[in-house]
Nucleic acid binder design. Structure first.
Lengths: 419, 419
DNA sequence: ACCTTATGCTCGTAGGACGAGCATATTAGG
DNA sequence: CCTAATATGCTCGTCCTACGAGCATAAGGT
């Protein structure tokens, strides 16, 4: 039956182990060849064959590894200087980011630009220029473009981006007429993927990632893959009715959790009018609560050092932060009861709210857990990538695509035809 | 490296296609050999080889298929009369069920018994006798025991079964000293698996199953596999705080959805005292609301015929049912926003509440959906298996186990050693 | 009786995985 | 400085799955 060259069991299985090797290289960048063989349980003969094949395919190169003890020295596996790359893009409210990713998952040339205009056409034209620049520089090595967007995705289309003020916008213009696949993902989803693959949740099989900015977004990941639902629209944690049913959400429903945990909630607690820019307003309230000049996002979220003084700030702001942090902890507890994750990673305002709020968050979290989770509550930790999560997640999306079994077969055919 | 006989790439791949064949046989019981080859894209030579191997392994037999037109007649694939089986058990509040399942997924000898006593020891001893009986009858053909239990599972242990009045009970006694694996699953989770594999959600990639009895349980399934979380404790939909925060749940939290959608909610709306048996109380209120003698669970839920008259019942009961159905529809909408499923299947009281409530459910469901889901709202349908879901799901769990690649290798070794 | 159609079987070939044996490159220790 | 110990890499023969082509088989249709 399988006359089709890239179908059937044999053609798929051919690249199976090669894809595993590349996945391992991505999980442990700079892994040695010997360690890789151990990790995957490859016999040395098979390792020889597969590495040679991947070298011939310009997917990786070997460099002498630093010697550690006795025994024949091994080599470090690195992406090939003429190997395939993807362009990762992340589109947010006030700026966009771009980076080129190699098969080991490293980002090169990360850039960040503010939108000169927020008009869809202007933004898409800018992104398109980034694609063209990458094509000029990398030529046929560029194999895919992946785009993290702060908006709602449905069946691979952007249907709404509230923070950008966009409705449905056709993003395909970013890669039109390039023959490059354009891979689309929600930014909170992709940030969760980044945490699960290379960030704070690498050891977790099931992880929940939540990001608080204007409202709450996030995703559940299972073994590094996001639970995206039938149309890619899953992850609307902010519109769960965990909040006060008297409050009406712009989404049309009542009692959305969104309204209880972001800048709008802080304003309500402070008796101030609804903020125009809920995100910077929230940072400002957090600043007032600490009395510190600028509590902003951690420059390096991996270091937990900068704990601002809890005293010295504005008591009203502190009470507002406490209330919002409690609503956050309470909701997270409900989601832990629901999903039973190994770990929860928090992004956006989350870590700062928690830090400034003192015990309010932890108390609410503990109180909301069902008894089965009390003995070993899943840790709630700050996201490792911070604001860079969506870009890293987009890179993961693109690399998953180009190192999948079918894309490897394509790349091999591409090389054969180029010679 | 792989000196271990049942590890490594080759040993796993060996059974890969054979496992696919058995999975297909289970998805389409009574499939013909020719249709199977088409379905999996097997060449006729490979089909010959694999079917022959599975025949030799006593996993399936072939019988002449009814002739439909021209061409050489093909055969129907059936489980082998000496092939492996699993014993599926389902443990509920007032009764337990048992059935033996063959590799094509059919249940033979389904039985149902009431608990003579609800003491854990007595119940476990009864289940153990069912295991012994199956062992007597099937001998070495019995390869696993799977158990669906109406309680909370954590790390493969039962930590609580509220409806049975049990705390943590060690269920391993059911299969102790038999060398049979005991596979454990929550009953709502397994009912969802049954719906996704062979019930109302077979065509759905992502499906949400919810069952309303005392509270709400359920599971999300992705391609037929349940999302069970890190410890198998996921699916506590009933303890999401969708309800009135003024109400305290026995779980310790406030506002649990549970309290808004079951018999306890009906009693509150009617101003009656909290019922002792919330489930039969709920059926009784539904009966009062219809005026019909007995609205009970559908005898055949696949036929949507028995729509009771909405008029003629007790108006107060109808209003209570309306309110509860609305709370159900509202919560389901929130979960659709969250998970983006293709389909929602409803079990337990759900279908009856919805049928009796008239538009209250559908209105609340529609009103709670986010706009992205409005164009094509996921259908909410009655579960196909009704009360038999957990038993069928347990059978799926067991059959997945014995038709997995490693278990097939074991079975082959077992046969070799028995000769 | 033929042809048509659908299916099943045999056999030669390709290619991945495996294991054994040998080759190689380094350190540790005398 | 030489040798043993150690870790790693390569080659090759074998096994097994998958594939494709050609042929065989068993029906219906004419």
């Amino acid at each position: 039956m399988p006359r089709n060259p890239d179908q059937g069991r044999a053609a798929t299985l051919r690249w199976h182990t090669a894809a595993q090797v590349l996945a391992t290289l991505r999980r442990v960048p700079g892994i040695t060849r010997a360690a890789l063989a151990r990790e995957l349980g490859l016999t040395s003969g098979l390792a020889t064959e597969i590495v040679a094949r991947l070298r011939d395919l310009r997917l990786l190169t070997e460099a002498p590894a630093p010697v550690v003890g006795r025994g024949r020295p091994t080599t470090v596996l690195r992406p090939h200087p003429e190997g395939p790359v993807v362009l990762a893009l992340a589109l947010r409210q006030e700026d966009w980011r771009a980076a080129v990713a190699t098969v080991d998952g490293r980002l090169i040339e990360p850039r960040r630009r503010r939108h000169p205009s927020r008009e869809p056409d202007a933004v898409l034209a800018t992104l398109r220029r980034a694609v063209d620049r990458a094509r000029d520089r990398y030529g046929h090595r560029l194999r895919a473009v992946s785009l993290a967007v702060a908006g709602a995705i449905y069946d691979d289309h952007l249907v709404q981006a509230a923070t950008l003020g966009w409705g449905a916008v056709d993003l395909r213009a970013v890669a039109r007429d390039t023959s490059l696949p354009l891979l689309l993902g929600n930014d909170a989803t992709l940030a969760g993927v980044a945490e699960a693959r290379a960030g704070a949740a690498t050891t977790a099989g099931t992880a929940l990632h939540l990001i608080v900015e204007v409202g709450v977004g996030g995703t559940l990941t299972i073994d590094g893959r996001p639970v995206t639902g039938a149309h890619g629209a899953a992850g609307e944690y902010g519109h769960l009715p965990f909040g006060d049913r008297a409050l009406r959400c712009p989404c049309g429903a009542r009692g959305c959790w969104d309204l209880a945990v972001d800048g709008r909630a802080l304003a309500r607690h402070l008796g101030e009018p609804p903020p125009v820019d809920a995100l910077s307003y929230a940072w400002e309230v957090i600043r007032r609560a600490t009395g510190a000049p600028h509590p902003g996002p951690d420059p390096d979220p991996r270091s937990g050092r900068r704990v601002p003084a809890r005293d010295g700030g504005d008591p009203a702001a502190r009470r507002a932060v406490d209330a919002v942090a409690a609503a956050l902890g309470d909701g997270i507890a409900a989601l832990v009861n629901l999903h039973d994750p190994d770990l929860v990673t928090l992004g956006g305002l989350g870590p700062a709210l928690r830090r400034v709020a003192g015990p309010a968050f932890d108390d609410a979290y503990a109180a909301g857990l069902m008894s089965v989770h009390r003995a070993q509550p899943p840790p709630v930790v700050a996201a490792a990538f911070g604001d860079e999560g969506p870009l890293h997640g987009a890179a993961v999306l693109g690399l998953d695509h180009i190192t999948g079994e079918s894309a490897l077969a394509e790349w091999a055919a591409h090389l054969r035809s180029a010679d």
